[in-house]
Computed example of a mutant assay.
Amino acid sequence: MTLNKDRPQLHNTLAIKQFNTRFQPGDSVLYLPRPDMPPEWDRIYTSARMEDGVAVVELAGREGVFPISVIHAMPVETTRVRAPQNDASLWQLVTAFVCGFAAATLVTLSIAPAGAVAPESIVIECDEPAEFAAVEEDVA
């Protein structure tokens, strides 16, 4: 008798495990709200889990949880290739940052500074106010 009671839970547990293996948070999926409606594009927000005896998942663009039975894979042509996991440790990231900073500093120091002109040698040529008024009267 207990074998029949455990069967639906075992089925849901296996379905959740298979769903989480197939889809990861951030993956593109098609959400089918009802059979008579066209599927809508969305992204997985959380891994699938059991809630009130139903296997559910959260979507990024919608409120609430949805049964995994209404979530379908995107066509192969439209899916992005999943990036491999990056297991860079902290010392590798710090080393990369320090090397980049050192290279930028060396490039900056190798460029000659811009030449400046002393303020005393700057000459601004402009007309005297009386000359400008005389030119306007001649034109008129």
Rank of each mutant, 00 (worst) to 15 (best):
G53R: 06
P84M: 05
P25L: 09
E77C: 04
D36L: 03
L106C: 13
N86K: 09
I68P: 08
T78S: 06
R82D: 11
G26M: 08
T108N: 13
R49E: 01
G115V: 11
L32K: 14
G26Y: 08
A112K: 07
F66E: 05
R82T: 14
G100L: 09
R49L: 04
Y45G: 03
P33K: 06
A96D: 13
R82H: 09
E58L: 06
I44T: 07
R49H: 11
L109R: 12
D27M: 14
L30V: 03
E51F: 11
R43N: 10
V29Y: 01
V54I: 15
T108S: 12
D42F: 02
A55C: 05
V29N: 02
F66A: 03
A103S: 09
V56S: 02
A48W: 01
N86I: 13
V94S: 06
M74N: 02
S89A: 10
M50L: 15
V54N: 08
T95H: 02
A83S: 14
C99I: 09
A55W: 04
I111Q: 08
A102L: 15
S69N: 10
D36V: 00
L32G: 02
V81H: 02
I68R: 08
V56N: 04
T95K: 04
I44K: 00
T78I: 02
T105C: 13
L106T: 09
R34E: 13
P38Y: 01
S28H: 02
R80A: 12
